[in-house]
């Protein structure tokens, strides 16, 4: 059981005086917790990711190069990255408006709206997928009026963007909201008293302060977007080279038993989203430091 009792008192008192003895933590359980964590992390995370990192090279560099030299793959990656960027950009103003309304206005039904914003987090992606596909289909509640305007959403890149916008919206709101809440309203009032117009306040006072939060929300939404699968595939139409997203191509390659092809796409997706999240984490750390310095000054 308890690991720190392995040294019995009798042996302890007979032991030579502590000289260069490695200091052990007095709180019991370190080795047990470390062992359990390493086992769990090793089996569930490290081992599979190691397979992902090693597998593409297993069939030789030429197989890897062949897998990379695949126009359909590049098209799929382009569709994924493009849609994710566009969706995240379109979410920025929407998220900003929602965050602003939540923090700075006496919004009737605030609590309900606050809860609704987390809905895309809560609803399973398959449910989102079939719902958005139905909603934006040419006969759907939103698809029908839009198609009368000549805009077709479902079964195209537009549909992918619409789905990713839904999934990404909460990231923007929840990144901006706390920063906005900590921002003293006096800042805007001071700017007004100094003669700034509303658009000048937005451009010169608020945007610089909110920029780290906006970038961070953008990064999170983008990272989620490039890997998103369930909420997209039903609405995307999935035409190779046109509306086929990279995660779907991974599935297609697997069904063709082309593991090398599937793995190389997966690897690129993993690296891209990890890099994106690491950048967001760094940005947050820096922003936090900046705020601390400001508070101390």
């Amino acid at each position: 059981m308890n690991l720190s009792t392995t040294l019995s008192p009798a042996r302890g008192s007979a032991a030579p005086r502590a000289k260069g003895r490695r200091a052990r933590d007095p709180l019991p359980g370190f080795r047990l917790a470390l062992g359990a964590t390493l086992l769990w992390l090793g089996l569930i995370v490290v081992l599979p990711l190691a397979a992902l990192a090693v597998r593409p090279w297993q069939e030789g560099a030429s197989a890897m190069l062949a897998a990379l030299n695949d126009g359909r793959m590049f098209a799929a990656l382009r569709v994924s990255f493009q849609s994710a960027v566009i969706a995240a950009i379109l979410d920025l103003p929407l998220g900003l408006i929602l965050a602003w309304a939540l923090v700075r206005t006496r919004l009737p039904g605030r609590r309900v709206i606050d809860a609704l914003i987390d809905l895309p987090f809560a609803i399973p992606t398959a449910v989102t997928g079939i719902t958005l596909a139905t909603l934006y289909s040419p006969q759907g509640w939103l698809g029908a009026p839009l198609s009368r305007l000549g805009i077709s959403v479902a079964y195209s890149v537009t549909g992918i963007v619409a789905a990713l916008m839904f999934v990404g919206l909460p990231f923007i709101v929840r990144s901006v909201e706390p920063v906005l809440r900590d921002l003293p309203p006096e800042l805007e009032e001071a700017a007004t008293l100094l003669g700034a117009r509303p658009w000048q306040i937005v451009a010169r006072v608020l945007t610089p302060v909110l920029l780290p939060a906006l970038i961070s929300g953008f990064g999170l939404a983008f990272a989620r977007g490039i890997g998103e699968y369930g909420s997209v595939i039903f609405i995307a139409g999935n035409q190779p080279f046109r509306s086929e997203i990279a995660p779907l191509l991974v599935v297609v390659r697997l069904q063709e038993f082309d593991y090398a092809g599937a793995t190389s796409i997966a690897f690129i997706l993993l690296v891209a989203s990890s890099a994106c999240l690491a950048a967001v984490a760094m940005l947050r750390k820096r922003a936090a430091r900046g705020l601390v310095a400001e508070g101390a000054a």
């Binding site: 992902l52 890997g227 699968y229 793995t263 997966a266």
Partner: peptide, 20 residues
């Protein structure tokens, strides 16, 4: 390492097990 699965696309999270 514990944070990694958050940034992994769901299909990749499935694929890794097929690789094994």
């Amino acid at each position: 390492l514990i944070e990694i699965p958050i940034s992994v696309s769901p299909v990749v999270a499935g694929l890794v097990w097929l690789l094994l």
